[in-house]
Simulated scan of single mutants.
Amino acid sequence: MRSRELDPSASPLDYYGYELRRSREAAGLTLAQLGSIVFCTGSLIGQIETAAKVPQREFSERMDAALGTGGTFSRLVGLVLRSQLPGWFQPYAEMEGRAAYICSFQAQLVDGLLQTENYARAVLGARDGSDLDGRVAARLDRQRTLARKHPPAAWVVLSEGVLHQQVGGREVMREQLGHLLSLQKRKWLEIQVLPFEAGAHTGLMGSFNLLRFESDPDIVYTEDFVQGHMTANPEAVREGSVRYDHLQAAALSVDDSAALIARVMEERYGDQPEPDGRDLA
């Protein structure tokens, strides 16, 4: 049975699949043969060739090595993953990747740049489980911004409520809070927690991000439940900057924030006995 033909101009995912099939066939390899070389199933490769599944970076690197494509698929996969983000979010993701300085205040959820895979899966699947693997992969790929050789300086303020809002279950939350603690070691990333005791604060209107650039105008970004809103309006940026300064001042220090995260992780998400007295794993 012949796999369906793709229109390479339809989307980055279709183009990737088209090029993968073309390169495999040019190498004279069947799906099964290529799968045995890169240690995955021929079925997986076939799904990616027909744009039924979203490729990831490791897969792309293996394809480049096996097919001798000189990094073609490693370059293409970035476009593919970016295309999995909501259309209204893609312009922001592009600007985020270029920013020299990222400031984020999150009132309800861990910032997407700091989320674990399981936490991201729970967040993105809360209402819609379609294409979940691709959407999760796209969110995690954004995190490469903070992991590159010369990352932007990033400062994240999380409301204490973020630590207590159980997303995905106790094990997912324990993993997520542990991940936040591990990120404290990064030179260009600072994480603060805004405690409940701060009372009324300048972030009560909701989450927002500020992006600063070497030569472009600064940007403030907000979201509602429908879409995101990005503006370089000087008054909006000035207001956002002042609000963020107040949030940083009201938040716990970086060290005290880490101590609070660790305490919530153990007290709220640590091992607890079940009703029959047995310990939970």
Rank of each mutant, 00 (worst) to 15 (best):
102 I>Q: 02
102 I>M: 03
102 I>Y: 04
102 I>A: 02
102 I>W: 06
103 C>L: 12
103 C>W: 10
103 C>K: 08
104 S>C: 07
104 S>Q: 06
104 S>W: 01
105 F>G: 00
105 F>P: 03
105 F>W: 09
107 A>F: 02
109 L>A: 07
109 L>K: 10
109 L>D: 08
110 V>Y: 01
111 D>Y: 07
111 D>R: 02
112 G>K: 00
112 G>C: 04
112 G>M: 05
113 L>A: 04
114 L>M: 11
114 L>E: 05
114 L>C: 09
115 Q>E: 04
115 Q>T: 06
116 T>S: 05
116 T>W: 02
117 E>C: 06
118 N>S: 15
118 N>F: 08
118 N>I: 12
119 Y>A: 03
119 Y>K: 10
119 Y>N: 05
120 A>R: 04
122 A>L: 04
123 V>I: 09
123 V>T: 01
124 L>W: 03
124 L>Y: 02
124 L>N: 01
126 A>D: 02
126 A>W: 05
127 R>Y: 09
127 R>V: 12
127 R>K: 07
128 D>Y: 03
129 G>E: 00
131 D>A: 13
132 L>I: 12
133 D>Y: 03
135 R>M: 11
135 R>P: 08
136 V>R: 00
139 R>E: 10
139 R>I: 14
139 R>W: 12
140 L>P: 01
141 D>S: 15
141 D>F: 15
141 D>M: 14
141 D>Q: 15
145 T>M: 13
146 L>V: 14
146 L>G: 10
146 L>I: 14
146 L>D: 11
149 K>F: 14
151 P>G: 12
153 A>N: 08
154 A>Q: 09
155 W>L: 12
155 W>P: 00
156 V>N: 00
156 V>K: 00
156 V>S: 01
158 L>W: 06
158 L>P: 00
159 S>P: 01
159 S>K: 02
160 E>Y: 13
160 E>I: 14
161 G>F: 11
161 G>E: 10
162 V>K: 05
162 V>L: 07
162 V>W: 06
162 V>H: 04
162 V>R: 04
163 L>R: 13
164 H>A: 14
164 H>E: 15
164 H>P: 11
168 G>L: 03
168 G>D: 02
169 G>N: 01
170 R>E: 10
172 V>M: 03
172 V>H: 02
173 M>V: 12
174 R>P: 08
176 Q>P: 07
177 L>Q: 11
177 L>M: 13
178 G>V: 04
178 G>I: 06
179 H>P: 04
179 H>I: 07
179 H>D: 03
180 L>F: 13
180 L>S: 10
181 L>W: 09
183 L>C: 12
183 L>M: 14
183 L>I: 10
185 K>C: 09
185 K>R: 15
186 R>I: 12
186 R>T: 13
187 K>I: 15
187 K>C: 15
188 W>E: 15
188 W>T: 15
189 L>E: 06
189 L>W: 06
189 L>A: 08
189 L>N: 05
190 E>A: 11
190 E>H: 10
191 I>S: 05
192 Q>P: 05
193 V>A: 06
194 L>D: 01
195 P>C: 05
195 P>W: 07
196 F>Q: 14
198 A>E: 02
199 G>I: 11
202 T>C: 01
203 G>S: 03
